[in-house]
Design a binder for these strands. Sequence first.
DNA 1: CTGCTCTCTGCAACCGATTGCAGTCATGCT
DNA 2: AGCATGACTGCAATCGGTTGCAGAGAGCAG
Lengths: 363, 363
Amino acid sequence: MSKRPTIADVARLAGVHKATASRALNPEADARVSAATARRVRTAAQELGFTPNTAARSLRTNRSSTVGVLIPDLTNPLFPPMARGIEEVLTRRGYTALLANTDNDQAKERTRFEALRGRQVDGFIVATAQREHALLAQAHAQGVPVVLLSRGTDLPMFPLVAADDATGMELAVRHLLELGHRSIAHLAGPQTLSTGAIRTRAFQQAVRAAGVAADRAPVLVSEAYSVRAGEQAARELLDRHPGSTAIVAGNDLIALGALHVLRERGLRCPQDVSLVGYNDMQFADEFQPPLTTVHVPHLELGAEAARLLLEQLERSDGQGAGQGLGRAGAGPAAVAVAKTVLLPVRLVVRDSTAAPQAGSEAG
Amino acid sequence: MSKRPTIADVARLAGVHKATASRALNPEADARVSAATARRVRTAAQELGFTPNTAARSLRTNRSSTVGVLIPDLTNPLFPPMARGIEEVLTRRGYTALLANTDNDQAKERTRFEALRGRQVDGFIVATAQREHALLAQAHAQGVPVVLLSRGTDLPMFPLVAADDATGMELAVRHLLELGHRSIAHLAGPQTLSTGAIRTRAFQQAVRAAGVAADRAPVLVSEAYSVRAGEQAARELLDRHPGSTAIVAGNDLIALGALHVLRERGLRCPQDVSLVGYNDMQFADEFQPPLTTVHVPHLELGAEAARLLLEQLERSDGQGAGQGLGRAGAGPAAVAVAKTVLLPVRLVVRDSTAAPQAGSEAG
DNA sequence: CTGCTCTCTGCAACCGATTGCAGTCATGCT
DNA sequence: AGCATGACTGCAATCGGTTGCAGAGAGCAG
């Protein structure tokens, strides 16, 4: 049972002191060692198959090259692509992600958060932000480096990477208007989430701008971004506003719920009711019918969030004082404010939308 | 910027030596300390909000309470539930999972594997096993604790948790036979993977047992478990065996590919061709048509794999000599052999299967 | 030739927890 | 009363890298 080689073994083989070996192996201290020794040390390390003990390193440096990732539920198809995007940029830079599912449960989130802090993570990527978020406020006060992913808080405490939902929603509504719809309902996502609130506001703005009367553009809020909650909201919508010829859902899961309810009521999609989803989740094109939806680049969202966090970590390098604050502009009057990055979206037209039928369903 | 409290702070507050504090805080050494001091230490820790520095701990104990999880691709809908199952049992026991996607790329897998070893993971859960797997053989030789998930190796080097595929395939074939099909094709998964090989063998056995001639039960191998590869294999199948009235696919993704090809050739499912998938992936019930498939309990698979690994880790506690071997039976003649756990599956009948139509498609 | 600077390397402390060993003290037994 | 036993607790070493400090030696200017 030969144990793993330590830096002392490498140093011995190279005939130098472990301090020298350490410096030779670390790029930034590399300059402080002669080229010849550096080469000797590196080949020695190679030969022994040396990999540094991260525990020892982080004990000394107080950095773990590890970041915590808080997501609601890996089983929700939005998140795997984000996770992959994160993983890709992180590993490329020698970092590792620790994923934690919170199930939208505050207590669970806190527990996992503390557990991850206990593991010395250098920062967090958080995709579970509520608009008001006690845990995040506290983390901010403590100066924990955090980047928000997809969902933001009302107070711009942290940098945020999200999709350009205002534009996305506008595209969706415009598409329906162009098809001729004049009674468009919105099955909104939870208003406690920034995505829910922003999309709803954009919806209202878009229909109003088109001159659609408010009662012809009702908004029903779904309790969650889930098929189940979407079904419930859809039933209420169809009961209360039977005249709607089109629905734009807060996300694809809610749209799926709506699809079920349309089917259960004998309404055809898109002939009787058109439906637009949001996110373009995997397999949205396999649904019955294939779903018209707004495509969100989830992988890139994750990747960008990871990049932002790394940038922040490297700036505050080891100080632990990283406040997660960027500057909006360089002018003297500029206030320190968390930067937000919006990625572009696009509408993907499939088979769940069509022109409204002449007589059908007109209220 | 008050730094995080260390065990020395706790000890000072409790008026004891840090060794005592450490013992008081660790359940198994707890007995070696008086009840009164233990309580004092614990309240002191509470008060300071002390959480042990995991880097220090793992440096000393040579265990990280961390396990590496190798999966092909988080974006493949089979894996998120497994990952959740793993996470659930791991975190309950104070462990953390480090996920790594390998994309079925040997080089990438090796890189990630080494990186994770560098992070002192205590063991691995591997869902990327090929039937012959150099990396795994090597890991076995080095005594790295590993549990295989879903996919096994030809040599039973490591414990394996998988679905009972032989039974599952038999259920699928029997279902088609009972509907009256007598020309049943198999779009097999890659034969380099145990799942592909086992399902194929079970398919062949089931049709033969039913007295179906071999040329009425062709097997076409799909290059990968993917929609794209499934399409390709399906085209070949329809070209070479146009008389098939039913197809059982190696998994749902391949089935989805077949669905596309049927559609592109103007064949209706299930009227012209029945189709059975495998896995019952998320949203398989939303496809067009909803897919008849074999349900595999992916979350439980992951959970069980995690349990097995923990068991193994705790047995070989800190010795690093854990060979990943269980004993089949307790008799003196019993050979050390890797235990394999098979979880039950069930057939889920939806709309992609029906009785064959009288005249249509009969070869 | 002297003295200074600069480059390279070694020494040793340090990060924070765990643990073998030994010492103290009280208790029980004879 | 004397001694053995056992329960607690403290001491100090240790895990494996990193890094401030200092010393050695070379090169160069005066």
